[in-house]
Amino acid sequence: MTRINLVVDGMRVADDIEPRMLLVQYLREKLGKTGTVVGCDTSNCGACTVHLDGRSVKSCNVLAVQADGSEVTTIEGLAQNGQLHPVQEAFRECHGLQCGFCTPGMIMQSVDLLKDNPKPTEEEIRLGIEGNLCRCTGYHNIVRAVQHASGQPVAPNEVTA
């Protein structure tokens, strides 16, 4: 067992864990933060994306011991004082989801993208979320949500009923 100390969503935590424990496992099974999900389990899909010391990572591909001494933000730590984060609001507003499974990772990666590039073009948005797979939406409403969150005009919906 190895002792780890870290800050998760603003809360200081310490635990004795097996070194082989993955960060995502630690978040879900030890801390009960099941908002972060495991999708592909092979570091392809990005559903498990969290922020580690301010940068997006795939938490199924990081050992919890590697996060010792670090600060982790999950989807559960984005809202402040009952107010959704602007990117969360934008995903709701633009309906940037269908089944919702990829959403936690999509939002965490979008927040990371907007931190580097507050006004991304559509292409930059698509490249910025290249490591996050969505099997429902075809990405259109996700891209619109990121445009909306960045205060840019949203591309019109080409599909008419």
């Binding site: 990005g46 580690l52 997006s56 990572v57 795939k58 990666q109 979320i129 290249e130 490591g131």
Partner: peptide, 9 residues
């Protein structure tokens, strides 16, 4: 190379 998250790590 790979994707943004992998490039961070």
């Amino acid at each position: 190379l790979a994707d943004v998250q992998v490039r961070h790590r």
